[in-house]
Write a protein that binds this DNA or RNA. Structure first.
Lengths: 338, 338
DNA sequence: ATGTGATGCGTAAACGTTTGCGTAAAGAGC
DNA sequence: GCTCTTTACGCAAACGTTTACGCATCACAT
C-alpha cells in the first residue's frame, strides 16, 4: 500500500498539541475553542496545506460540501449561463458543483425519486423545469435544501424573473408604437408540456392586449427553438388576419421567425415587427428588439441563497425576482398602416 | 437525532443472512462469492432500493464515483456542448460530474496544485486549455486518472480533432476555388497565451499555403470572440495588400469578421470570402462556410475513455482523433479577379 | 485416511471526521 | 470561602464502507 501522503486532522492536532476534536471544532469555527488556539490550529493547517476530507466529514454527520445542479439541457445559452453563475458563486464559497443534465421528465422523476441525494449533496438547485407534485413532495421529505430557478415551486426559495411583466414590457412596446394586430409564438417542450415561464408570458401577452382593448386570439404554439420559430411564423403568416407584429417566447424563437420572414420576402421591421425575450447574443447580431433578462445573475443569486441556507442563515428574500428591461433594436417599428 | 432512513449494507446483509463483507464483494462483482448468493444479495439490494454511500466507500479505500471536469468557460457553445457529451456518458456509467470552471490560468494552477483532488474524485477531464509543466507534473504524481480534450498533454489519454488538418481543409477550399491572397485571423487568450489548437491551425494555414506555393504573411492576431473577429477583419482590411479570402480561427471570430465587412460595405462572398471552424449554430444562420468538428462527440469520447480507465480496462485508443469536414455555405466563392 | 488448493464466507481493523459527554480550570455571585 | 456557571478542551463512539486475514468446506489426488 502506498503511504498516505495526505495530511489529516491528526497531523494538525499533533502539530498543535491539541486533540482531533479541538481541531475539528476550531476549523469549522464552532464555539468552545479559545481564539488563541484556534489561530494556532488555523496556522498549522495552512502550513500543512490541510484540507478536510469531505467523505469522512459527511460520514460522521457533517456536510458534503457539494451542491447538485439539475438542468434539462446544458448546451443551450440560457442554461449554460445560469450554470456559470451558480458555479462561480458556489466555488467562491468552497462548495463543489455536481451537475445533472436530465432531459426527460421521466429521468428527473427517477432522479428525485430513488437517488440518494442526501448521501451525495447538501443542496439541490433545480433550473427552470416543471417540478411535478410527487417530485416536490419527495424533495420536501428528504432534508436537503432546495432552491428553484425560473419557477416557484411550493415553499422552496426561488430565483426568477417576472415572466408576465417581461411579456407586458415586450407587448407594451409593440402597442406603444402603434400595433393593434399582435401575434405571439409560444412554446411547448418535446413532451408536450407548457412550462411555467411560457404560461406566464402568454398571460402577460393577453393581459397587455386586454389593457389596450385589443383582440388576442392570434397565438401559435410550437416546439422551442429556431426551427420552432420558423414554423410559428409560417403559421401566423397563413392566418386570415396576419398580424403586424409578433411577440416571440424567446430570442431563439424570434430568430427562427426572422428566417421565415426573410424567406417569405416580408421586410423587417417595415412589413412585420418582431420582438423576443432574453437578449441572447444573436439578438444583437440579428438586430432584434428584445426584453433582456439577467441570466448569469439568476444563477449567481441562486448560488448565494444556497450558501446562506447552508450556513444556517435565512436568506434576505426567499423569492428573488430580478428585473428585466426592454432593449430596442431594429426589428420593431410602427406598423405600415400608420 | 432523526432516525436514519437510509438503508445500508448491514440491512442488506441482515435480509440475506450473510455478512457485510460478502454484500460488499457481491455488489461490486468481486470474486469470492457464489453466483447463487450474489443473486440473492443483488435482489435484496434492489428490493430495499439500496444505494452505496460514496463517502464510506471512498473513505475505506474504494472509489468516489465522481469525475471532475475542468473547463475555462461554461457559457460558451463549445464548452457547454463538450460538457453535455461528457455528462451524458458519465451518467450512463453511474459516475457523478463535478464541475470546475476556472477561467484564469492562475486559478487552474492553484486548483491542480493544492486541491485535494484525490479526496474528491477518481478522475479529471481537462478541457482544451494549456496545461503548464508543473500542472502536468502535479497531475502525474497524484494517482487520479486524467483525460485531456482538445490538446495532447504528455502521456495522458486525449480526445481531440486534428486542428492542423481542419485548417488545411478550410484553406484548401479557399485555394481550390481560386484564391491566392488568403489571410488568417488567429486568436490569443486574455492572458496573451496562444492555445494549442490555435497554434496548430496557424501551422495548417501556413502549410496549406506553402503546398500551393503561396505567400503567407497575412495574419492578424486578436482576442477570441466576435469582437476579436471584428477587430481582426479591420486589421486585414487596412493592409496594403488586402486578401480576397480570410480563414478565421473559429466561427464566432468569423461572425465578427462578417460584421466588419458588412459595416465596411464589402460584399460577401463577392468581395471577400470568409471561412471558419466549428459549425457553430450561428454559422448556419450567417450562411457561413466552415469546417465542422464534432463537439459533443468529443466530450462523449472522453467520458467513455474515463469509464474504461476507471474500470481497469485499457481504452481502445489512448489518443482519439475525431474527423472534421468541410461544410460549404454562402460565405465563400471564387475571388473577384477570376 | 491424509494432504493440497480452491472456493465461499466471516471477523475485525482501518479510513478521517463529528459530536455527546466528561472534566478540569477559571470566573461570578454571595 | 464556597457553590454555580461558563469556558476550553479531551475521550471515545459513531458513520458505512473496503479489505487483509483466517477458518471451514469441498473436490481431488495421493
Amino acid at each position: 500500500m502506498i503511504p498516505k501522503q495526505s495530511v489529516n486532522m491528526a497531523d494538525v492536532a499533533r502539530r498543535t498539541g491539541v486533540s482531533i476534536a479541538t481541531v475539528s471544532r476550531a476549523l469549522r469555527g464552532e464555539r468552545g475553542v479559545s481564539e488563541a488556539t484556534r489561530l494556532r490550529i488555523q496556522r498549522a493547517a495552512d502550513e500543512l496545506a490541510y484540507v478536510i476530507s469531505p467523505e469522512a466529514s459527511k460520514l460522521s454527520g457533517g456536510a458534503t460540501g457539494r451542491v447538485a445542479v439539475v438542468v434539462p439541457w446544458i448546451d443551450a445559452w440560457f442554461y449554460s449561463r445560469i450554470l456559470a453563475g451558480i458555479e462561480h458563486e458556489l466555488r467562491a464559497a468552497d462548495l463543489d458543483v455536481l451537475l445533472y443534465c436530465l432531459e426527460e421528465s421521466s429521468q428527473r422523476e427517477s432522479f428525485f425519486e430513488r437517488l440518494p441525494l442526501r448521501r451525495k449533496v447538501d443542496a439541490v438547485i433545480a433550473v427552470a423545469f416543471p417540478l411535478t407534485g410527487p417530485e416536490r413532495a419527495r424533495l420536501e421529505e428528504m432534508d436537503v435544501t432546495v432552491v428553484v430557478i425560473g419557477a416557484h415551486a411550493g415553499e422552496f426559495p426561488s430565483v426568477r424573473i417576472d415572466d408576465e411583466l417581461a411579456a407586458r414590457q415586450a407587448v407594451g412596446h409593440l402597442i406603444r408604437i402603434g400595433h393593434t394586430r399582435i401575434g405571439m409564438i409560444r412554446t411547448v417542450d418535446p413532451e408536450g408540456q407548457y412550462w411555467e415561464g411560457d404560461i406566464a408570458r402568454v398571460a402577460g401577452f393577453h393581459a397587455a392586449l386586454a389593457d389596450a382593448g385589443l383582440d388576442d386570439d392570434c397565438t401559435a404554439t410550437v416546439p422551442w427553438g429556431i426551427e420552432g420559430g420558423e414554423r410559428g411564423m409560417e403559421l401566423l403568416l397563413s392566418r386570415a388576419e396576419v398580424p403586424t407584429a409578433v411577440f416571440c417566447h424567446s430570442d431563439e424563437v424570434a430568430v427562427g421567425a426572422l428566417r421565415t420572414l426573410r424567406r417569405a420576402g416580408v421586410p423587417v421591421p417595415a412589413g412585420m415587427s418582431v420582438i423576443g425575450i432574453d437578449d441572447h447574443p444573436t439578438a444583437e447580431l440579428a438586430d432584434l428588439t428584445t426584453v433582456r433578462q439577467p441570466v448569469g445573475e439568476q444563477g449567481a443569486a441562486a448560488g448565494r441563497v444556497v450558501v446562506e441556507l447552508l450556513s444556517g442563515r435565512e436568506p434576505a428574500e426567499r423569492a428573488v425576482v430580478l428585473p428585466t428591461h426592454l432593449v430596442v433594436r431594429g426589428s420593431t417599428a410602427r406598423p405600415p398602416e400608420l
